[in-house]
């Protein structure tokens, strides 16, 4: 086993009566992507702020790239990059000027900072907008520039705090592609997210964090093993046909079909979404069962929490009914 590049042992942090972190332990292997998953107010951002030297922990010990977050903060900063919850870029400057400024503050020479900015603009598909003031950028472009800025210093460890919160689904998927690209080079990435889907897609390992502590840790598959993976949900027209329907879909994949508490919905665990619905419809058709509804339910953060804590997280939605975030009714920085 290699030496972890991030170690966190028993970190606590309180703000007055608010106990933001009540004891966080983590280990992150070099070259991996680690996801911190949890609702708002769980302690994700506080953990990142401690690891990036923005906050001093009350107790406990943490190291990043071999440097202690308290006693070697200055050295540690040379080894990390951070992109926070909002795009921390100067709107007045152009994209290129923003990156050159960050480069100079990483203490590259002016010429180095310039060539690094060009290189990164190219890599993040921003070269065409590099000489425009950032205030003309779309939200997705700003996030991309913010990500780009965090890479200027060629960090060993990159911290992304909710990199896609507030983005529309299309920009989110676009940003995921950039994040995947940037970790191909071997940078260790620690990212926080409220979205299970995001952690699932990007992270090698995931820590579920709640009320200031880690309540579960493992690979995406391990966690799904605990909470159950994708489930096919069926509702059929005639209740008399339920046994026939359950028999028809039983052999589809990897588990028994079972009937929900309401006595109407049949659930079958499935492995992959691809072709599943077609397959199920064919089977049911062959058995002469008429469907009312069919859907694949993917586990959400709420399912994770329900399984791990027995509590629901309150889902906050915007006017269009899209999920914008999850928390316990409290709007605060995770």
């Amino acid at each position: 086993m290699t030496t972890p590049i991030i170690t966190v042992e028993g970190i606590t942090k309180s703000f007055g009566d608010v106990h933001a972190l009540t004891g966080v332990d983590l280990e992150v292997e070099p070259g991996t992507v680690y996801g911190l998953l949890g609702p708002n107010g769980a302690g994700k951002t506080t953990t990142v702020r401690v690891l990036t030297t923005l906050l001093k922990p009350d107790a406990g010990r943490a190291t990043v790239a071999g440097y202690d977050v308290v006693s070697q903060a200055a050295e540690l900063r040379t080894a990390i990059g951070l992109a926070g919850q909002y795009a921390a870029v100067d709107e007045i400057l152009t994209g290129r000027e923003n990156l050159e400024m960050v480069g100079q503050l990483y203490r590259l020479s002016t010429a180095e900072a310039r060539s690094r900015a060009d290189e990164i603009l190219e890599r993040f598909d921003l070269a065409y907008a590099g000489d425009r003031p950032v205030k003309t950028y779309s939200g997705g472009m700003r996030r991309r520039l913010d990500l780009a800025a965090s890479l200027v210093g060629r960090p060993q460890v990159l911290f992304l705090d909710e990199p896609t919160t507030g983005l529309d689904p299309r920009s989110r998927i676009g940003l995921w592609e950039f994040i995947e690209r940037l970790v191909e080079g071997g940078t260790t990435l620690l990212l926080t997210t409220q979205y299970l889907e995001e952690a699932d897609r990007l992270a090698d390992r995931i820590a579920v964090i709640d009320k200031g502590t880690v309540i579960a840790e493992g690979t995406s598959d391990e966690l799904k093993g605990r909470i159950g993976g994708d489930v096919l949900e069926l509702q059929i027209a005639n209740p008399e046909n339920i046994p026939a329907a359950m028999a028809a879909v039983a052999g589809m994949c990897c588990g028994e079909a079972n009937l929900d508490d309401d006595g109407e919905t049949i659930r079958v665990p499935v492995e992959s979404a691809v072709g599943t619905i077609t397959d199920a419809v064919r089977r049911l058709d062959a058995a002469g069962v008429q469907l009312v509804d069919i859907a694949i339910h993917r586990p959400t953060l709420d399912d994770v929490f329900l399984t791990l804590t027995g509590e629901h997280v309150t889902q906050e939605t915007n006017g269009n009914g899209e999920l914008v975030g999850a928390g316990r009714g409290r709007r605060s920085r995770g």
């Binding site: 951070l82 926070g84 503050l105």
Partner: peptide, 12 residues
């Protein structure tokens, strides 16, 4: 705007 956070995380 979060710029101070960024500056504080840089080795400046």
């Amino acid at each position: 705007k979060g710029l101070i956070d960024r500056f504080r995380s840089l080795p400046m």
